[in-house]
Write a protein that binds this DNA or RNA. Structure first.
Length: 316
DNA sequence: CAATCAACCTGGGTGC
DNA sequence: TGCACCCAGGTTGATT
């Protein structure tokens, strides 16, 4: 799924392919709801003839700055893909919107699930749209101390908190699970109870993870592709996401999976123990059974993956 | 403020 | 082969 590293990869591709080029107009519209504009029909009129002056990213939004002080904001949501192709090339099965470019190319938006959105914004509207977003995890303003300070103020559990775009912008389910594993933090720990050391470790692991994922061109799980149609390589390097039952790359214990805030959550019960100050905050009943299973596995005299796996199968 | 849930959508997988 | 069913997840908005 497109999260910060995937969106950043797409942005870089678009910057390379669109810089300075003109948008002739709307050339294809299979799913009108993709276009978000208060006045129906206005989008088509407003977009025509503008030139792409730059490609930025904020959270999971791709922002194409256009001539005449407008910005095109593209959100891929779950399955969106943006790609630049010759207008003569056949459209994909899930083509939803296309913009005609100079040089007989098209900027195409394909989206199987039809969740993705494209909006055209004035600077003021864009400011409003971006106002609720939290800091960029890779931004200079977010120092380790600032991040620790934000964590200290919140009583939410780490997993849902890190997914909250108002707390920190750009993470999704895959990278939250990966970051927590790297930092050795259980997804259900309460943010405000982390030690200074834990906050700092999470900060550094998070940034390192995102940088590595961007360097790999992102994670291709099912449909994600960059602006050139290329898949990302990070999926092979993931440590816990969609690895239930497989041995932890760090300790060999079986990776576990549970649902937190309606999200599939993957973690290593051995590397990410539910202990410390965070464990003093009462755990809702629905997680109790899981905890017993974890503890049983962790303290088993044999240890290791095989016993852990057996312990989790017994739980079902 | 925190947690849960429904809604938006459909491809892909499972079981029968 | 077909069909009913469920799951995946980014985001918003309503409710407890």
């Amino acid at each position: 799924m497109p999260e910060l590293p995937e969106v950043e990869t797409v942005r870089r591709g678009l910057a390379q392919r669109l810089q300075g080029r003109a948008i002739r107009g709307l050339s294809y519209l299979e799913w009108p709801r993709t276009i978000e504009h208060p006045v129906a029909g206005e989008f088509e009129r407003l977009i025509a003839g503008r030139r792409v002056e730059g490609a930025r990213r904020r959270a999971k939004l791709i922002l194409l700055d256009l001539s005449g002080d407008y910005s095109l904001a593209i959100h891929l949501r779950m399955t969106g893909q943006v790609i630049v192709e010759p207008a003569s090339a056949p459209r994909g099965r899930f083509a939803r919107v296309a913009l005609a470019l100079d040089g007989d190319d098209e900027l195409r938006f394909d989206d199987a699930r039809r969740f993705g959105r494209i909006g055209l914004y004035t600077p003021a509207d864009l400011r409003t749209r971006l106002a609720r977003l939290g800091p960029e995890p890779l931004g200079e303003e977010l120092t380790a101390a600032a991040f620790a300070g934000r964590l200290r103020q919140r009583r939410a559990r780490l997993k849902p908190l890190l997914l909250d775009q108002a707390f920190l912008a750009g993470l999704g389910n895959i990278y939250v699970d990966e970051a927590l594993h790297r930092a050795g933090l259980h997804p259900l720990l309460v943010a405000s109870t982390l030690s200074a050391t834990q906050s700092e470790l999470l900060y550094h692991e998070l940034r390192e993870l995102l940088a590595e994922a961007i360097a790999s061109g992102g994670t291709t799980f099912s449909s994600y592709r960059d602006a050139f149609g290329r898949a990302g390589d990070y999926y092979e390097r993931r440590r816990v996401y969609a690895r239930e039952g497989e041995p932890c790359t760090t300790c060999g214990f079986a990776i576990a999976r549970m649902t937190v805030g309606g999200r599939g959550t993957h973690y290593c019960p051995s590397c990410q123990p539910f202990t410390g100050a965070g464990a003093l905050v009462a755990l809702p009943d629905r997680y109790q059974r899981r905890r017993v299973a974890e503890t049983g596995g962790r303290f088993d005299s044999m240890g290791g993956g095989a016993t852990a796996r057996a312990s989790h199968e017994r739980e079902r």
